[in-house]
Design a binder for these strands. Structure first.
Lengths: 230, 230
DNA sequence: AGTTTATTGCGAACATCGTAGCGGAATCAA
DNA sequence: TTGATTCCGCTACGATGTTCGCAATAAACT
């Protein structure tokens, strides 16, 4: 018996041609499921029913993919409405961005390791700058403050994501890891780390919101002082 | 003719036995020369006249090596003298840490991706906490403020390191990259990013110190306000 | 000194990763 | 229909981190 291999029987008539949009969107979906370290070109290709090398037709390399991915994520974060005082506006942006970043697994880490080149991402920076300028800050101060504000939010969220990854590794959950950490701190030599030991019990797993807000308040109060002088 | 392989002719009499200290120190030296992405187990082993597999006798895996490396780096950063007001002390720590991190290539990036488990690293956190506590902050406020302060410094330096890596890739230097970036910003659609375009010319390559100090001031003023209230 | 035990390094492999370069299918011109 | 051209997809390559069984050395003990 002869097996007659007929060509491309199950191949779609018209070659299903991939585009960048599709690649990036699938990458985001994959990121949500497997996280940053497991987001690999091969796995992504598999998702698209294609071999890894094919992706390079639509993306220069993995770094570029991550940049695009970062922009995609930024695109999902709502821009501020632009009402209220400048402090309220900045707070709103910060909360929005953090929420948006936590909405996708490891999203903040992607932004953290990626230069802010994408247009949607630049829109958010623009928004912060605009608020600061309209609040009366000088160009230089506004630029500097915007840098720090953006950094603060993304790095804070990135840290949360890193911790989540760390705590989600084997069968460990968030609270358990914190309990362990507290234990470690308590067994530290008290004469070398007196304050650290003392503060061990203030470590709590569920006050990330409060910690974040505390940071925002610090920044805003600092800016306020600056505004009153300038 | 028969080749008689005589055993271990050029092997040193006493087997030079490796220890963790040596591995970590060599890793730091290697990091300085090749940077984080090129710091590989194989290359490190080569440095030690050893094959890669041998390293795993002294280090559980690469992650642990990075943690140890982070601690090694922290160990080189001087602890504060402890004189002056709390703001001066915190400033001193911040400047010290940043300087210490910039002293080794990609050092800050190592700290940024590594949990603060090492003893020497904990000492610095302890120092910050102590200053805050002695300044009269509550335990909770001190803990939160210390978290943000540490994050601020390391992430700022990590960002600098990332940029340095980016700018050091092909024959590009710092200033040139900034010039390019400014160019990019200027060619952005003015109607979409008015403020960003306006601020393009305020981007300058050599004001990292000022930018850092600005951030410190923001934090300190924020803390000052908090202290006065309560 | 001789014997046993523990430690250290190594060779070779494995799985996995990002990606260059090429062969061949799809499309178009004639 | 044929020939040329475009362009997509894949095989293959060189690295990476890491495991395991074995050999050789150092340390401990008798």
């Amino acid at each position: 018996m002869r097996i007659i291999p007929y060509k491309h029987a199950d191949r779609p008539r018209k070659r299903r041609t991939l585009d960048q949009q599709q690649v990036v969107k699938t990458a985001l979906a994959l990121l949500d499921e497997v996280g940053l370290e497991e987001l690999t070109m091969r796995r992504l290709a598999e998702r698209l029913d294609v071999k890894a090398a094919s992706l390079y037709r639509h993306v220069r390399n993995k770094d570029e993919l991550l940049i695009l991915l970062g922009d995609e994520i930024s695109g999902e974060i709502p821009l501020p409405r632009g009402s209220g005082g400048w402090k309220e506006q900045l707070t709103e942006i910060a909360l929005n961005v953090r929420r948006g970043l936590l909405a996708h697994r490891d999203a903040a880490r992607v932004l953290a390791i990626t230069p802010p080149f994408g247009p949607r991402r630049l829109h958010h920076i623009e928004a912060v700058l605009r608020v600061l300028r309209s609040a009366g800050f000088s160009r230089k101060d506004a630029a500097r403050a915007a840098y720090h504000a953006n950094n603060f939010v993304t790095e804070f969220a990135a840290d949360e994501a890193r911790f989540a990854a760390f705590a989600g590794a084997p069968g460990s959950n968030r609270r358990k890891v914190f309990a362990q950490a507290r234990q470690v701190f308590k067994t530290l030599p008290r004469d070398e780390y007196p304050t650290l030991v003392e503060l061990a019990e203030d470590l709590t797993a569920d006050d990330q919101d409060g910690l974040f807000q505390f940071g925002i308040d610090l920044l805003l109060r600092g800016l306020e002082v600056l505004a009153k002088r300038g």
